[in-house]
Computed example of a mutant assay.
Amino acid sequence: MKTVLTNKNISIRTRRRALECYIEPILMYGCEAWTISKQTQKKLEATEMWSLRRMLRISWTAKKTNDTVLEEAHTTRLLISKIRKRQATFFGHVMRREKLENLVTTGMLEGKRSRGKQREKLIEGLTDWLKAGKSLEAIEATKDRKKWRTMIANAVKQGT
């Protein structure tokens, strides 16, 4: 894809669409089950900027800020919000099923907890992103599809 993405004869819009169609799905494979920490979020944003810089043929030694690169590409950072949206739709689907996946996702399984700081759960990251307050509010909102979809749409509009 390098020859297509770096070809100056193809418009930036077309190259960006090729990036979204062919590269991003590979990058986001299985993202519905990820827990995105601050470190992971930084790496994903860096990958997004790296691919845009490659597409625009901007060297890593060129002293251009990420904002100018985004302006040249006529875009904004969208990768994290796309991942969060996919996670939220998948989470709503799992919560409505009320099967084993529901128990695993919410972390309501019996047994001992491991030592040390506990890992962040998917639901905790989503409630922060949706600004739902408590995780119980998010779980209750999944029962009503219309309410859940509006919560997701509002979070996408606000960004990350």
Rank of each mutant, 00 (worst) to 15 (best):
R57T: 06
M28L: 15
T61Q: 11
A33W: 00
I26R: 15
A62G: 01
E48R: 03
S59R: 14
P25G: 11
L27V: 15
H74Q: 15
A73G: 11
T35D: 13
L70F: 07
I58H: 04
E32T: 05
E45T: 12
R57S: 14
N66T: 03
R53F: 00
Y29G: 08
Y22T: 03
L44Q: 05
Q41H: 02
L56S: 06
K64L: 13
A62S: 15
T61L: 05
T40H: 08
I23L: 14
S37E: 11
L44C: 07
T75I: 09
C31P: 04
G30C: 04
K64A: 07
L70T: 04
Y22V: 03
Q39F: 02
G30T: 03
R77C: 05
T47V: 09
R53L: 01
R57M: 10
M55A: 08
K43V: 01
C31M: 02
L44D: 06
A73M: 07
D67T: 12
A73C: 12
N66P: 04
T47G: 10
I58Q: 04
L70E: 11
E71F: 01
E48C: 06
I23F: 12
S59E: 12
T61C: 03
T40V: 09
W34D: 10
V69E: 07
W60I: 09
